[in-house]
Amino acid sequence: MPRRGAFTRDFPAIEPEPVVLAGTTGARVVHATGTRKSTVSTSRLDPSRYQSSRLAGELADEWVEYMAAAELSPGTVRAYQQAIDLLCVSVDAELGRDAPNASLAVDQPDLVRAAAAWERTLPSGFPLCFDSSGALGGGDPAADPQT
């Protein structure tokens, strides 16, 4: 056993992680592995689909980081994606012309009111939001924003 102070090696240098800025362009993609490790599900979230694209980009960046860290199931990954989608659609409707200025980093426009309005719509909209396959839109292709 070495004596105190006899160690000559130091801890390895910590490499800085690349910085991902919120609001980067393009769709965010998460790959989730199912319970059978052979199945991989891919979920995509494109902030440019929303008027509140800045907010959507911030939420999408957090979504990607959290899903990678937590290693959640594909169903849970989709549930988070759909929650972000529904929130951003609601923020767009609630804020109107101010939606492009919506961000987690600023006080105005007031996201608290928009989030409260979204929260009030959740109980009544839940059965109608998803069709039998779990896809957003209730089975009506005209109402499905991803088609």
Rank of each mutant, 00 (worst) to 15 (best):
G57R: 06
L59T: 08
A6C: 06
I14F: 08
T24D: 14
V106A: 11
D10F: 14
G125W: 08
S48Y: 02
D107Y: 05
Q81L: 05
L55K: 02
D140K: 07
S133P: 00
E62H: 10
A143S: 15
L95T: 00
A99C: 05
D98T: 00
P16D: 11
G5S: 10
T8F: 07
P2K: 13
N101E: 12
V91Y: 04
D98F: 05
A68T: 00
S48F: 08
A135L: 13
L86Q: 06
A22E: 14
C129T: 14
A83S: 04
A6W: 12
A56Q: 09
R113K: 13
A93H: 00
A13W: 07
A116G: 00
L128I: 05
Y80M: 01
L59R: 04
G137S: 06
P100C: 03
S103F: 04
A117L: 12
V112M: 11
V64R: 10
S124A: 15
S124V: 11
A135F: 11
L111Q: 05
G75D: 05
S41G: 06
G96R: 02
R54W: 10
R97F: 08
P12W: 06
S53Y: 08
L95F: 07
V91T: 02
A115E: 12
R44M: 15
A143L: 15
A13L: 14
H31V: 13
T39S: 14
M67K: 00
G96A: 05
D107E: 09
G138D: 07
E94N: 07
L136W: 12
E15P: 00
L104F: 02
A115W: 08
D144T: 11
T121Q: 15
E62T: 10
T42D: 02
Y80L: 03
G125Y: 01
T147S: 13
Q81R: 13
D85A: 06
A117W: 01
L122H: 00
P100T: 08
L111M: 07
T42F: 07
L45N: 08
T8Q: 14
A115N: 00
A83L: 07
P47T: 10
A135I: 02
V91S: 02
D92L: 03
A60C: 11
P2M: 15
S103C: 08
P12K: 07
S90E: 04
A79G: 03
L21F: 14
R97P: 08
A99K: 01
R49A: 13
V64G: 00
D131M: 04
E17W: 08
R9A: 14
P141G: 13
W63Q: 01
D46F: 09
F126I: 08
T39Y: 15
P18K: 09
G138K: 03
R97I: 07
A102Y: 03
A105F: 10
L72Q: 04
G139Y: 04
L21K: 14
L45V: 10
G134V: 10
D92W: 01
L86C: 04
P109M: 11
A56H: 01
L55I: 06
Y80K: 02
E119D: 09
R9H: 15
C88E: 04
V112Y: 10
G75T: 04
A143E: 15
G57S: 13
P12V: 12
D92E: 02
T39N: 15
G75C: 02
G134P: 03
P145L: 13
T121S: 15
W63A: 05
S41P: 00
T25H: 14
R97A: 12
N101M: 12
